[in-house]
Write a protein that binds this DNA or RNA. Structure first.
Lengths: 177, 177
DNA sequence: TAAAGCATGTAATCCGTTACATGATTTA
DNA sequence: TAAATCATGTAACGGATTACATGCTTTA
């Protein structure tokens, strides 16, 4: 139901093909909701059957362009207005931190350092996107806000990892002497 | 495979029943990896079949206590050492922010405010846990670190929401005049 | 004795990932 | 003409959620 509404949201802005939708989802939405094309195509077919979208044109390479119907537009906005988001979240990297007592302090520190590398890389990616994005047009303001959260999130994560790694490394050094 | 290793990690500390494992997972691990008892029991059965754990005792109310085997201990530590965590994450609440251009600025601001309430509540829960937890024993140091991340995460999230809501509200006020 | 909590399971369904499969068009 | 990119699909599998189902033990 989340994928469905994400697609409706994109189509509410303007008509697109399944390929384009997949491409957009795996660019801007990738960090908040990863999607595969193998989910998108069947979902689009189902949404046509449900009257939420309709095929507008067909281009070369058997391309199909879909547009949102009034029923579809109603469905997304009602979803946004009448339902609350789930806050469930899975974070394997953090779950592993719970288990770090199973390995040596040196190995635990190495794990935290490798996580740090990951988040520094992500942060750099987001900074690059922020730098090249002229934030002006309507829907882009919200994208920009999500991007801003991404910058803050990874920065805070890196700080926390530095704090945690410093602690563990201090302890590892003490154990070695 | 994540659930499996989470269970092995808990059993590596000391033997427990499926019920206890479920209870622990839905307390401390709930924020990073939500689990249902309907997943735990079949997984335990499979792990016995795979020789990673074994039934140690049976108590009243047909309780079964499982302990980790050397093979099981080897499996968790190898998982920790030889594999890298997936960083995929789904955040429905954030995905909705991308779609907020579909509703009025007032409605968007209300959404951000309700998210703020949620995160303030979570933060308070975590602060309560932090206050009542004497952080001393071995595996607890890592739990404490995860908890510290939780505190930082929700604080940062609240600050971001305040920043975003202020922006939208300023705009809503301008549109109204 | 009723309610709350302990304790374990199965079944149906949904959602997501990975792999398989095909073919047209553009560009180097 | 080969490679890259556009473009759309299906199938198998695995993991997670929800609902169904049962029964014992302690406490109020």
């Amino acid at each position: 139901v989340v994928l469905r509404n994400a697609l409706l949201g994109l189509l509410a802005a303007h008509p697109r093909s399944g390929y384009e939708l997949t491409r957009i989802l795996s660019r801007s939405f990738a960090y908040v909701w990863p999607v595969n094309h193998s989910q998108v195509y069947p979902e689009l077919a189902q949404m046509v059957a449900d009257g939420l979208i309709e095929q507008r044109e067909s281009g070369p390479r058997r391309k199909k362009v879909y547009g949102i119907t009034p029923a579809g537009r109603h469905a997304v906005t009602e979803w946004l207005r009448q339902t609350r988001p789930s806050h469930d979240s899975r974070n394997e990297a953090l779950l592993r931190v719970f288990l770090l007592w199973l390995v040596s302090p040196a190995e635990a520190a190495a794990y935290l350092r490798s996580e740090m590398e990951f988040h520094r890389g992500r942060l750099a990616e987001l900074q690059a996107i922020a730098a090249e994005t002229p934030h002006a047009h309507p829907a882009a303001r919200w994208s920009r806000m999500v991007l801003e959260w991404g910058l803050r999130y990874h920065s805070a994560y890196i700080e926390w990892l530095e704090w945690a790694a410093a602690q563990v490394e201090r302890e590892a050094a003490a154990a070695a002497s």
